[in-house]
Structure formats: structure tokens, C-alpha cells
Amino acid sequence: MTWRRQAFLDQVTERGEYESVQEAERAARVILALLGAHLVGQIRARLAARLPEDYALILLNPLQSAEPLTPERFVRATAAWIEGATEQTATWDVSAVLSTVADIAGEELLGQILLQLPTGYDLLFGRPQPT
């Protein structure tokens, strides 16, 4: 099932407690571009198929990453890309967007996504995994 753009942004806006949809949109664009650099092949394509079209395109045309970022570096990179963000606000942004992405992905696809990411991303998606 593909989510509608408005439903996606409403969810991110609510979870991020943003004052405007524009703030949610900015966070979603940056975070999906960073996430896309970490996912490959069918996993990235399957997630993109569930996202609203403009966000799917961002995921499929990611920012280039020389190496997988640890969760901490992912948050720092998010802070660097969002004007005026701090690591604390970026953590909030990442949580709002990735928990929404986790809902869209569903448990099976999310499990496959987490296998492609460094340890600790389960917490960023709001889905702590047993160790």
C-alpha cells in the first residue's frame, strides 16, 4: 500500500510536533535522502514503492555516502543538513520521520531494512530489537 503524501506529512508533523507542515517536509526530505544512501537493491525499491511518489524519488536518488553512518553520525549528518538544527532537534526529526517510515514499511520489510543498517538503527525507527 502506498501512503498518500498528506497522510505521510500529517503523521510526521504530529510525531515531530512541528508548527508547520513545511518543517515536517524539510525533515522528511533530508532524512529520506540520507536513508536512501544506506539502503540498496530490492529493499530500497520495496520501501520506495510504499512511500508517496515525491518521497520515493528522494529515497531512490540519495545523497552519496562513502560509508554507512552509525546512528549517532546519521543524527549528526541530519543536523548538518537542516538549517538551524542541533543534534538534539535532529534526533527528534529522525525519530519523527523514521518511526513513520517504520509504520509504512511494516515489520517484515523493516526487519530487512535494519539488516542493511549498522547496529542501533532500530532505536531511530522507534522499534527496539531484542539483542
Rank of each mutant, 00 (worst) to 15 (best):
L34R: 10
F74C: 06
A45H: 03
L69V: 06
S20D: 13
F74G: 08
E23D: 14
E108A: 09
T86G: 05
I31M: 07
E107D: 15
Q112D: 09
T91A: 11
D54A: 05
I31V: 10
E25L: 13
Q88L: 09
I58A: 07
I31Q: 03
A27H: 15
E17C: 06
V40N: 05
T78K: 01
Q22M: 12
A90C: 11
T78D: 02
P62H: 01
V94A: 10
T100L: 03
E107H: 13
L47F: 01
E87T: 14
S95I: 02
G41V: 01
P52Y: 07
V40A: 03
W92R: 15
A85F: 08
Q42E: 04
N61R: 11
D93G: 00
D103Y: 09
E25W: 09
D54C: 02
V97M: 10
E53I: 12
L98V: 04
D103S: 10
L69F: 05
T91E: 12
Q42L: 03
A24C: 03
L63S: 09
Y55N: 04
W81L: 15
E107S: 15
Q42C: 00
S65E: 04
V75D: 11
L32G: 11
A37V: 06
L51G: 06
P71H: 09
V97Q: 14
L57K: 15
A48D: 01
L47E: 02
L60T: 07
S65M: 01
I113G: 03
I58T: 11
L39E: 02
Q116W: 02
L47M: 10
V97L: 13
S99R: 15
G41S: 04
A90D: 10
L114K: 07
R76K: 14
G16Y: 09
N61I: 05
I113F: 02
A48T: 01
G41F: 00
T91Y: 00
E19D: 12
V21H: 12
V94W: 10
A37M: 03
E23A: 10
A66N: 13
E25P: 05
W92P: 01
Y55S: 03
I82V: 10
L110N: 10
A79M: 06
G84A: 00
E19V: 03
I104E: 05
A33C: 08
V75S: 07
S65Y: 00
T70L: 11
E19K: 09
A45S: 12
F74Y: 11
E23V: 05
G111R: 10
